[in-house]
Simulated scan of single mutants.
Amino acid sequence: MSTTVKLRSAVIGYGGAFNMGKHHASKMIESGIEFVAACDLDPARAAQAEQDFPGIRTFTNVSELLAQPDIDLVTVITPHNTHAPLAEQILHSGKHCILEKPMCIHAEDADKLVKLAASKGLMLSVFHNRRWDAWYLTVKDLMDRDLIGDIFHVEMYMGGYNKPGNWWRSSKEISGGMFYDWGAHYIDYLLGIVPGKVQSVRGYIHNRVWHDVTNEDHIESHIQFESGAVAHIEMSSIARAGKAMIRILGTKGAIVAPSLWEGHLTLHTEVNGLNIETKVPCLKDNHDAYYNNIADHLYNGAELVVKPEEARRVIAILETSELSAKAGKELELPYEIN
């Protein structure tokens, strides 16, 4: 690294679900960023953070954490509806900010955060670490080798017939809705697979079965790109029959992934006039790359891989899908790329 002064980081949110506070802290340390503080409203979770990382400072009040002058970077790992106000607080305190996905719930808030970070000269990024998933790296490699050609159709699916759990992720007011969990990953994947501007979004929503939770039962988003490419993303908790999680059609080949975790993709292509179907082993995932890039960006000025403007597009598509469903028509995408 080009500097001997170590960046110092903290997390807001050290909840027990998935142990993400410990995960983020560990990845920061591995990337060369010192982890010095954790904040959680629950004193027991703050105590757990100190037990996991002896010697760190712990807080149960966000303002007290942000008043610490020697903290450079704060990662937010809290329920989705708190992301925007916490990020605003962090940026106003003069600290770099990373948000767990999704960036926030509303595209207008995402836009405000993008502009605030730029005005302050601070880094803002979103933890879209799944850009380094094995299956996705393999798709990008096949694209780079021109084995797929011009991609004109993408389908993405996740679901089943299962009652949602009784927790904040099933509350629409807090989570933003069922599309704001894996849907945020899927939209980010999609925007890396299909280049260019989005022309319009058409959403469809069903609330038919699980009436004791406020999230949707089933949501679909049809995304039309200016290139003519079309994507269909479906998330469901009432789908008794499933389908492949990923299906990508191009002018030279097609890719099918029944599961994102099988370790291989099925490639359909043509060789010497023959239609070929073959299993392609997935490349190795590289989830360390996210924080390695953050460190390289802040220490050495390397280009930030997950830019806030990209995360803003994700939120715009998620929100516009719902607004379109309510309006019963296609809608244009706000805050689209120039």
Rank of each mutant, 00 (worst) to 15 (best):
K172W: 05
Y136F: 15
F179I: 04
M156Q: 14
V154T: 10
D150S: 13
P164T: 04
D133L: 05
H128C: 12
E173C: 01
I148C: 04
D150K: 06
L113G: 11
N166K: 14
V126C: 15
Y180A: 05
A110C: 15
S170Y: 09
E108H: 05
D146S: 08
K112Q: 13
Y157G: 14
Y180R: 02
G176I: 03
K163Q: 13
S119Y: 02
W168C: 03
F179Y: 11
M158D: 15
T138R: 09
F127W: 14
R169V: 08
K140H: 09
M158R: 14
G165P: 07
L113E: 03
V139N: 06
D111T: 00
W132E: 07
L113K: 02
D133N: 14
A117S: 15
W135K: 03
W182V: 10
R169T: 11
Y161K: 11
V114C: 15
A117I: 04
S170M: 07
S125Q: 06
L137S: 12
F179P: 01
D181F: 05
G149K: 00
T138V: 10
H128K: 09
L147M: 14
R169W: 07
I151R: 05
A107R: 01
L190R: 09
L124H: 10
W182P: 01
S170L: 02
L122V: 12
S170A: 15
I151C: 07
K163V: 12
D109S: 13
L124E: 08
I151P: 05
W168V: 00
E155Y: 11
L142W: 09
M178G: 09
N162T: 12
M156H: 10
D141Q: 14
M158A: 15
Y136I: 04
L124Q: 01
L113W: 02
K115D: 11
G149R: 02
G165F: 03
Y161T: 03
G159T: 09
S170G: 12
A107H: 12
L116A: 14
H153M: 06
S125E: 11
D181S: 13
M123Y: 08
D150G: 08
Y180C: 02
V114D: 08
K172Q: 13
L142T: 12
M178C: 12
R130S: 04
A134Y: 09
I148W: 00
E173M: 04
D188S: 13
D109Y: 00
M178L: 11
Y189E: 02
E108S: 14
V126Y: 09
V139D: 07
F152L: 03
D111Y: 03
E173S: 09
S171C: 14
A107N: 07
I187W: 01
H185L: 07
V126N: 10
N166F: 13
I148Y: 02
F152H: 13
D181N: 08
W167G: 14
H128M: 09
M123N: 10
R130D: 11
R169P: 01
R145L: 06
K112R: 15
L190E: 06
A107C: 11
W135F: 15
N166A: 13
R130W: 12
L137N: 06
F127P: 01
A134Q: 04
K172H: 13
N162K: 13
W168Y: 14
D133G: 08
S171H: 06
G160V: 02
Y189P: 07
D111V: 01
G159K: 05
I151Q: 03
M178E: 00
M143A: 15
S119I: 04
N129Q: 12
G159A: 11
L190Q: 06
S125R: 08
Y157W: 15
A117R: 00
G177D: 02
E155K: 11
V139H: 07
